[in-house]
Write a protein that binds this DNA or RNA. Structure first.
Length: 264
DNA sequence: AGTACCACCTGACGGC
DNA sequence: TGCCGTCAGGTGGTAC
């Protein structure tokens, strides 16, 4: 489930294998992965005979720059990832776009559920501003974080999930952050004390940077991380109280009713 | 500004 | 065995 740490891991993977490789051709095997119809023609023109020279991540969006100085955008939806391989056979069912490099290797964008997309864009700055994305969750300062949450009349969980407030947090890391901060997911932002906001900030930063360091490999996450217990019928790793499942803004939400109590 | 609801897509899982 | 409904995830659009 690509959230910020997964996308950062994909960015590093892309940088390791795709940067400075000459692109021989681009195969688009499923146009459903494109956002703009004209990209069927534009992407091959943009990429063929060029090289990627730089990467940039903002929230869950990955931007890749070519030596022509043009940019493309990759979003992983919920099932997207890269495969760097030395042959494209056997065919992988969900490879949607395949970059064929002159060194004989391929970078495939595999996206089972097609919620991801690839798009030609002008540049990251204009895209970020057009989409009204908030500051990146790993780069945001405490003061801006506080300002983004203060005075909002909505549950903290839905604020964390809103990419326009803070970019990069998805459903799993939102639950993780609220659990570690001992905050009830439906708590209104308005009701949060400065201390709680500070705690949220520190926990969020710590969780995301830990996950990035571990290359978003859940199996390696610290034992006490909530993600290891975020399952039906599981007990709280802290107090052993059975976890509860609810919905916040239509999204499935796990929490410990004993550790994360509503404010009175 | 905030919320609800639907849509997109596929595979896994539970129930019968 | 197999069918069928439900769910999961991130985003985008629309209507209120």
């Amino acid at each position: 489930m690509p959230e910020l740490p997964e996308v950062e891991t994909f960015r590093l993977y892309f940088a390791k294998y795709a940067l400075d490789q000459k692109i021989q051709q681009v195969l688009i095997t499923d146009t459903g992965i494109l956002r703009k119809e004209e990209d069927i023609q534009i992407l091959p023109q943009l990429l063929t005979e060029k090289k990627f020279i730089a990467t940039l991540r903002h929230g869950k969006f990955l931007f890749c720059q070519l030596n022509s100085k043009k940019w493309i955008l990759i979003h992983f939806g919920m099932s997207g990832y890269f495969r760097y391989v030395d042959q494209i056979n056997p065919y992988h069912k969900h490879d949607r776009v395949i970059f064929h490099f002159t060194n004989g290797y391929y970078l495939a964008f595999n996206c089972m559920r097609k919620f991801g997309h690839i798009e030609s864009i002008k540049n990251p700055e204009s895209y970020i501003s057009a989409k009204k994305l908030g500051p990146d969750a790993l780069k945001i300062s405490y003061l801006v974080f506080k300002k983004q949450l203060e005075q909002r009349k909505r549950p903290i969980k839905s604020a964390l999930l809103s990419q326009g407030i803070i970019a990069g947090v998805g459903n799993l890391y939102a639950d993780e952050t609220l659990f570690q901060s001992k905050i009830y997911p439906l708590t209104n932002c308005e009701a949060l004390s400065d201390k709680m906001i500070q705690d949220l900030y520190e926990k969020l930063k710590n969780i995301l940077s830990t996950a990035v360091q571990l290359q978003a490999d859940y199996g390696k996450f610290p034992e006490h991380f909530f993600i290891n217990y975020r399952r039906k019928g599981e007990k709280c790793p802290r107090c052993k109280h059975p976890l509860e499942i609810t919905k916040v803004g239509q999204r499935t939400t796990y929490f410990c009713p004993n550790c994360q109590k509503p404010m009175v």
